[in-house]
Amino acid sequence: MLLSLLVVTALAVIRLRDLFAVVMLFGIYSLLSASLFVVLDAVDVAFTEASVGAGVATVFMLGTLALTTSREKTPGAHKPLLPLLVVLVTGAALIYGTSDIPHYGDPGNPIHQHVAPRYLEDSAEEIGIPNVVSSVLASYRGYDTLGETTVVFTAAIGVLLLIGGARRRRRSEEPPRPDREEEDA
């Protein structure tokens, strides 16, 4: 049921030309996938996806639309046939690839044999906190998380460098707006 809702949302994103609706549908898509994460036992991930995807990402995209335009032009030069062919071939290759993937929900899958049992059994004594996701995130895989925090930090610097400063005049015949310059952004 959730899966079919996700597919419908994704198809609607392809069809619609109104970017405002597209961004809103993306928020719905994130919320649906968050509920799917709860079904799949990943409560931490669901939490993050709901707050990030349905909340902050939608606000950022709406902010971009407010700064640019909210209407997509009808594609004239783009022929849909070649992209469709590429997508179909890629999808067929991926579906062929799934024939080697172990079945969904099987406890004997290779992914469940390597480090996961050790984390689940020993983290209570070694780390002493109940949430295994937190202990793996911050302690066992501390290097990863440090790196990812640094990526977020770098992305913020990039955004601030790109659009954080005072606005310069566009090349087209837009009048200058000196009274609205930000002195500090």
Binding site: V56, V59, F60, G63, T64, A66, L67, T149, V152, F153, A155, A156, V159, L160, I163, G164, R167, R180, E182, A185
Partner: peptide, 19 residues
């Protein structure tokens, strides 16, 4: 701290741009 500050400053950057 990092994630909160990053998200708020990105929002400020987008919102401050449109004025």
């Amino acid at each position: 701290i990092t994630v909160a500050s990053v998200m708020i400053s990105i929002f400020y950057a987008f919102a401050g741009r449109g004025r």
